[in-house]
Design a protein around this nucleic acid. Structure first.
Length: 800
DNA sequence: CTTGACCGGGG
DNA sequence: GTGTACGGTCAAG
């Protein structure tokens, strides 16, 4: 029989000493497990000298551990050169590491290769499967009571359409815990809301289901997941928190945590510093894992709390209930419906985040060939590397070995190399700024200059590109396209095509969203190659390639600046791939400028017009030089774009942040006096006690329990005082406090916001408002004293 | 200035 | 499990 379905996940098991690949599918007729028993584990040996000598030595080998089931002489491409290798096949995957060690000791062996690629990945890469798109399997039905669905013994597997990606069938969940016991478990899905509550009385909401005990809650929770049987299970920080709790509590009650489609319990896959909770037969995605590893790079928020991430991506907030309130409410059995609603909200946010994030994970999976479980938890470096390994398999390229710890240390100890060029701005206000930037600068440099470890310093080459970096000269052979440029060629070309086609699609359609996710995945991956070349743990690490890339980037920016200056524009600022230009004729001469720059650029590279701004503010550093990476821009429609002002952080009060934004806005609207007035008025309000203490709150997280601090710090003292009032504050809690009026040190007067009846105006003026305002207004000659409303001559700080 | 410990998210 | 992979910040040395 033949079955077509979306490939959710893959793994392998060993039965009767035979490795069996298991593919978990979702089909229109329900879950399917396809088992393949014909795939053989293998690795490669590179001969020290002669391939026949090597083959003979391996044939004579009597392994102490593991079984060699066959060998084959074949040819692969190694660092751009043809290389004869011996493919060694083993009985089971665990034999591979054992046998490669024994083989590597043979004199005839130079080195072993491709011995550490997990068996299920090897299978997916070699068959060019792209989870979670659709595949077709052929074979006979099989009885397997351990799987909740149909099982078939597959004899053939093939990818069908890669653009037919798994439709959403998602269940979000979240736990609430009090004193190490689960008190609530919420679920959210399309048309489904449920909060299980370990408390039988007092709840009104229709979605609440009371249960009699924690054990009953766990049993009901597992039953709900099995009953709803979702392909995808999501949550926020579920790998490191919720599943940890579930494991512990199930153990406590003697329950098995089985919520997958097999009879196996949830397993925890250690991967360096993270663990992933694997639910067999489904895709468990921890949205925090993907947000923190991949998405945070392009996000504005500094913290990756569910609240902040939902705020930025969805424009929505969690309900306004603090952890302290939750504990108290539960302890006193008060506001129970608010509690349930809070619990539900977290699942709802996770579900809504999943609607936008999961398709991105899927697109990256289709591109890299990783299963969504892995894509969700993989760093940029691993994403690139897995993509390269799969492409290497398709091109008969021999994958380099991972560097040893010693080698990684050596790479680190080489220190940093020069990055992008940053133009030091002249401080003050600049008018009429046009910003231009290079479209995908580093990917297009690598592509158009054929920068790659396998084109570097080639012995026989007719067309060489020399790049001088410091004292060194690196040459990249232009005769044939290198491995990395070839990959980027595909990625960049496809992305440009999709970007073009997007313009003809309606944004509301699924086709648009699919194409947009695909182009975003292409962008994420292609932008990660440059970083990968300089990543010390990379198999294809090439510091010369990374250095040459930034060197060429600096050259292109300099040439762009030269052309701009020749044309009479003034350069206000520039950073790595962008230039900020000024000049009365900038609007009319823009096309000429772009033409001149673009005509000097090689193919693929392009300078684009990014935007026009009426005014820009640049500050200077304490040394009196133009501050790089710190500026504010005002667009013609009144939008502010603020970059790098360090006071715009959570460890500053909201009043300070808002004051700085207002000051910047006034200054950009050519109203410096108005900016000063904002400061003066804010100071007056503070002095008169007219400011809401909420806007003075400062947030700091506790790294340890309050009593374990040796030093006296405001947040620690506030926490200690709160403890005396009966609060339970532990390591990891975020403390929100206000500096109150009165005598003693700052720390003595720090109180949790809820207990702050007043505030210390002097503190907020001197330590919060003046610094953020002065940061901007010093550019216009204002001293801190002047902003405080004192005569410059006084020089005394009366508030000290 | 360099080195080592700590931290992220969750309740 | 064909295991075990981060990067930034901050206090101490």
């Amino acid at each position: 029989m033949e079955i077509t379905g979306w490939l959710l996940d893959a793994d392998y098991i060993i039965e009767d000493d035979v490795p069996i690949i298991r593919l978990f599918l979702s089909t229109e007729d329900g879950p399917v497990q396809a088992r393949i028993d014909s795939f053989t584990p293998y690795f490669y040996l590179v001969p020290a000298e002669d391939i026949d000598d090597l083959a003979e030595a391996v044939a004579d080998l009597e392994p102490e551990e593991g079984t060699i089931t066959g060998t084959e002489q074949t040819t692969r491409v190694d660092n751009g050169q043809k290389q004869e290798v011996l493919k060694v096949e083993t009985a089971v995957p665990p034999d591979v590491p054992k046998l490669k060690d024994q083989c590597w000791e043979l004199d005839a062996v130079q080195e072993a290769r491709e011995f550490d690629i997990p068996f299920y990945k090897r299978f997916l890469f070699d068959h060019d499967l792209r989870p979670p798109s659709r595949i077709t399997v052929e074979g006979d039905p099989l009885t397997d009571p351990s799987f909740d669905g149909q099982t078939i013994a597959a004899t053939s597997v093939a990818q069908t359409e890669t653009d037919d990606i798994l439709p959403s069938d998602t269940l979000a969940f979240d736990l609430e815990v009090y004193k190490d016991e689960i008190i609530m478990c919420s679920f959210y899905s399309d048309g489904y809301r449920k909060v299980l509550v370990n408390e039988e009385d007092g709840f009104e909401a229709e979605y609440v289901e009371p249960v009699a005990s924690e054990q009953a809650l766990l049993e009901r929770m597992m039953a709900i997941i099995k009953d709803r049987d979702p392909d995808i299970l999501v949550g926020y920080n579920t790998d490191e928190y919720d599943f940890d709790v579930l494991r512990d509590r199930c153990e406590e009650h003697g329950l098995e945590l089985t919520i997958g489609r097999t009879d196996r319990r949830v397993t925890f896959q250690r991967r360096g510093r993270f663990q992933g909770a694997l639910v067999e037969g489904r895709i468990h995605l921890d949205l925090y894992a993907f947000v923190s590893t991949v998405m945070s790079m392009t996000m504005d928020t500094e913290t990756l709390t569910l609240d902040a991430v939902a705020q930025e991506l969805l424009g929505k907030q969690k309900e306004d209930m603090h952890w302290e309130d939750i504990k108290n409410a539960w302890r006193d059995r008060e506001q129970l419906d608010e509690l349930a609603s809070y619990a539900l909200k977290d699942s709802e946010l996770a579900y809504e985040l999943a609607e936008s994030i999961v398709p991105q994970i899927h697109s990256l999976s289709v591109l890299t060939g990783l299963v969504p479980f892995d894509t969700c938890r993989t760093s940029y470096g691993q994403l690139v590397e897995n993509f390269m390994i799969r492409e290497a398999a398709q091109r008969d390229i021999l994958v380099p070995n991972r560097p040893s710890q010693r080698r990684i240390g050596e790479r680190h100890s080489q220190g940093d190399y020069l990055g992008g060029f940053v133009y030091e701005p002249e401080e003050g206000l600049h008018e009429d700024i046009a910003i231009f930037d290079f479209r995908s600068l580093y990917p297009t440099i690598i592509l158009s200059h054929n920068i790659s470890p396998d084109t570097l310093d080639r012995a026989e080459c007719t067309d060489e590109l020399a790049v001088e970096v410091d004292e060194e000269t690196y040459t990249f052979c232009q005769d044939e396209q290198g491995f990395i440029p070839a990959l980027l060629d595909d990625l960049v070309t496809e992305r440009y095509e999709i970007k073009d086609s997007l313009q003809e699609l309606d944004e509301q359609t699924q086709a648009y969203r699919d194409a947009d996710n695909r182009q975003n995945a292409l962008k994420i991956l292609s932008n990660a190659f440059y970083g990968y070349l300089g990543y010390a743990s990379a198999r294809w690490y090439s510091r010369p390639s990374a250095e040459a890339t930034t060197k060429l980037g600096r050259e292109y920016i300099h040439e762009t600046i030269d052309i701009a200056e020749e044309m009479g524009f003034e350069v206000a600022y520039g950073d790595t791939d962008s230039v900020f230009l000024k000049g009365e004729t900038i609007q009319t001469d823009m096309d000429t400028f772009l033409d001149r720059v673009n005509s000097m650029l090689p193919s693929y590279m392009e300078l684009e017009f990014e935007g026009y701004f009426e005014r820009g503010l640049f500050t200077y550093t304490d040394e009196g030089r133009g501050a790089k990476k710190t500026y504010a821009l005002l667009s013609p429609d009144g939008d502010l774009k603020i970059t790098g002002f360090e006071y715009v952080r959570r460890d500053w009060s909201r009043l300070a942040r808002e004051t700085q934004e207002q000051v910047i806005r006034h200054v950009l609207e050519n109203d410096v006096e108005g900016a000063v007035e904002v400061v003066t008025a804010t100071i007056e309000d503070l002095k008169n006690g007219d400011v809401d203490p909420e806007s003075l709150t400062i947030y700091t997280s506790m790294s340890k329990r309050p009593e374990n601090y040796d030093t006296k710090a405001p947040h620690v003292e506030a926490a200690k005082k709160a403890q005396k009032r009966g609060h339970d504050i532990g390591a990891g809690d975020t403390v929100d406090y206000v500096i109150t009026a009165g005598g003693g040190s700052i720390s003595d007067r720090a109180e949790l916001t809820q207990y702050a009846d007043d505030y210390d105006a002097t503190y907020y003026i001197d330590k919060q408002i003046i610094p953020v305002a002065h940061r901007v207004l010093k550019v216009f000659g204002y001293s801190e004293e002047q902003l405080r409303g004192e005569g410059k001559q006084s020089g005394l700080n009366q508030f000290a």
